[in-house]
Structures are given as C-alpha cells and as structure tokens.
Design a protein around this nucleic acid. Structure first.
Lengths: 218, 218
DNA sequence: CGTGAAATTGAGCATCTTCAAAGTCGGTGG
DNA sequence: CCACCGACTTTGAAGATGCTCAATTTCACG
C-alpha cells in the first residue's frame, strides 16, 4: 500500500529516506473535494483507492471535466505553478488519497536522484496524457471518442492489475460527456450504438468490453 | 539572451552554476524539426527566436497540432516520460532554439533549489496550459475557439514585451484549425466574421486586434 | 419500497464539415 | 524587376453530425 505513494525506481538503500515522507492518508466521500480551484497548494496526492475527476471552470462558470484519476495515479501537480490549485479534484466514489507534502518531496528529490527522476517522469507522462486527450477532442468523432475513452480506462485498469474487460465507471454520462466534449445524450446514444454493434455490453455504469479489437477498429 | 535558457528566480551567486549548463544554440529553418516523434530524448529546448508547433499523430497517420511555442517558451518536456519524444517540434519560421542537456539540468536541479523550483513550475504551467486547451476544444464554439486563441497569443506576446494588439501568425489556417479542432475553412470563415463585426483586422497571416474587449465578450 | 437523479430515446434544428471554385499571396527564376 | 507558379486563403452550397428540447424509463440510495 505504501508503494502507491511514489513507488518504483527506488533502490533498496533509499527506502529509509522515503519513510521520511510522512505520507498520511485521507478519506474523501463521494462528491467531496480533495482540493478546490484556488486552494493554496501544499501537497501532491496519490489515489490510494477509489477514483476522482478533476474539473476546471471557464470564466462564466461553465465547468468541464479535464481528467480522471484511478487508484495508483497522481493528483495535484497543477498546483505547483501558481502555488494554488488550477482545478478541483472531486471524488467519484468514496475514496482515499495519500498526502505527499510538496516541500518534503522537493527536498527528497534533491537528495535522491531516483526520486527526482520519478517525479519528472510523472509530470511528463501527464503532459503526454493531456496532449493525447487534446487529440481526442480535436479530431475524433463521437463514436471514436467514446471508444478511445473505454480503451483508455481498460488499459489503465490492466496496468493496475484489474480487469481490462469490465469495470464500473463511477462517473455519470454527463461527466463523460464533459470530459469527451459532447452532450450526455450523445454519450448515451453512442454507448447504445456500440452495444447494438456487439462491441460492448452496458448496464448503466457497469461496462463490459466484448470485442476489444472491434473497438480499436473504430 | 542567455536568460531565455531558464531565466528568473535564480539568486546572483547561483549564476556561475548556471554557466555550467553549456547551453548551445541551434538554428532551425522553417518547416524543419527540432525533434521528431520517437527520437531519443536527450535535451530540453528554449525557443530563442521564432516560433514552433508541436505535432502528435494518431495510429493511422492522422496528425494534430497540439501546441504552439513562441520565443522564450520551453520545448521538449514530453520526452522525459519515455526517454523518447512523444511529439514532433516543427519550426513555423526560421527560428533558433537553446539546447539544455537534460542530464546536466537534473544535476543542477539537485544542487540549486531555485532551479528545481523553476523546472517544476515550468512543467506545471504547461499542464495547466494543456488543460485549458482541453476546455477550449471540449466546450467552446468555433467563434469562441478562435477568439480564445487570438487572446492567448495576444497575452503571450504581451508577456514577452511584444505587441498584444497585432502580430504575425506564422501558422497556416490548416495548422490553426488542427490546433483548434476545426477545419481550415471554418477558421477562415470565423476570422472573416470577426472582421466584419469589427473585432479584428486580418491581412492573411497578419492579425490586428481592434476590439479586445469585444473579443473577450464572445 | 418509494423517490429523485440518471439514463435512454425520439424529433427537429443549428453548427460545422465537405466538396468545389475562385482569388490572393509570396517567393523564385528568367 | 517582373511574371509566373504553387501554396494558401476565401467563399459558396449542400449535407452530416451532434445538440436541444422533451418524454419516458430505469436505477441507486435512503
């Protein structure tokens, strides 16, 4: 469990130092925020269990889901730039996050180069992830967006040792639509269409991928 | 000039160390790549003069412009994650970039905390920038996208001491469309419409913002 | 179980895309 | 220096995709 809070890539003799990152856990109930837009930035977070969405707002109040974080993924990097959070992180189900004080982490990154490396990679990975999502939003049709989304979740589940074929999407159709740049009705229609084509099987938020190759082909 | 390659936030006594970052320049002609998708990652870059676009590709070959870099901005952070570049960086005009060897930068970040801070902020800033672009793509109309784009360029120009009211966009309508998730024809029509409304004045790639408040209002 | 939120489905409509045809610009060679 | 050429831009008209509004139906939670 402790591994979740900045795992992999650390040599054995560096572990004691890792311990100094007093990495306390925090429970968040569904709908609750780990942090909100404008909150002062103090810590990064690692999702320990559950899942969260990140939400940004336009001037004018319109909100959009900009990200989805599953167990094992990092949260809060947006706060570093301006010392306050640029988005809100809302739990999609009762979840638990690991609190990683940024000050301590910085110190550790200066002492342990593997940790520095790991943090850099984490940020770079997220940059790529967001670029990929920009491509989804910028050049895919509704069908393609939904298929790409399901495949992304599937892959991330697989990486974390869960089933890549079936999962419970905790977000609403509206959240999905917001993340994918379409209306909740179009999301619903698209899922129905994919089901009729025999590519997936949906029961509300529970989704099973029947023909993963077919999904990729879209 | 040297400041461009990782400026601000360094105390005077840290300057000598900065010198150890042998930060050579490299000229790139219009259309040429600083790096391409899949190239091994070795350095970060700072745009010294000119401008570049970053481009990603779907499996299937479809390409999309995922970013635009003006003088003074950083380039190449996408390479850290996988030790190879996830996008290509193509010069929009004859440009010059500063090469910052990543290995040396990492070492320096361990020794000089202001440098570490600066790199972290840079990456976080770019994360926010990309999130903001996801919002543009996900929830704005064609008019709003173009307006948001022009205002973004305007603001970035202002920050670098150039005119916020008029500038030469070196990219084609097709590049703009790709970046904004619309066709080149829609970009063109939208610019014409904004001009008829008296908000901007366009002569091909040269654009003057006439009514910045009006643009913001869209 | 009941109840309010979430999801599904339909019909008409707006926006953006596609296809097509001129028109314009920039730069290159005569 | 000018004329030409290809690339880029503009504009139009028709069509497709996804949105809006609305009516049910289903589901999850208390």
């Amino acid at each position: 469990m402790r591994q979740l809070c900045m795992p992999q890539g650390l040599a054995a003799d560096e572990m004691p130092k890792l311990e100094s990152l007093i990495c306390t856990a925090r429970a968040v109930r569904r709908g609750e925020a780990v942090y909100r837009i404008g909150d002062p930035f103090e810590s990064l977070y690692a999702v320990r269990s559950g899942s969260l969405k990140t939400v940004m707002a336009h001037r004018g109040g319109r909100e959009q889901v900009t990200g989805l974080r599953l167990a094992g993924e990092a949260l809060g990097l947006d706060g570093i730039s301006e010392d306050r959070h640029a988005c809100s992180a809302i739990a999609l189900e009762d979840s638990s996050v690991c609190i990683i004080p940024y000050g301590a982490l910085k110190t550790m990154c200066r002492e342990v180069s593997a940790m520095q490396e790991r943090l850099h990679r984490l940020m770079s990975e997220q940059l790529i992830r967001e670029s990929a999502q920009m491509m989804v939003l910028g050049s895919l049709s509704a069908d393609e967006r939904v298929a790409a989304f399901l495949l992304d979740i599937s892959e991330r589940n697989a990486q974390r040792g869960y089933s890549s074929a079936e999962f419970n999407l905790r977000m609403t159709r509206e959240d999905m639509g917001s993340y994918l740049g379409m209306t909740l009705e179009t999301v619903s229609r698209t899922l129905s269409r994919l089901q009729k084509r025999g590519l997936i099987d949906t029961q509300g938020k529970f989704i099973r991928i029947v023909d993963i190759e077919g999904l990729r082909q879209i």
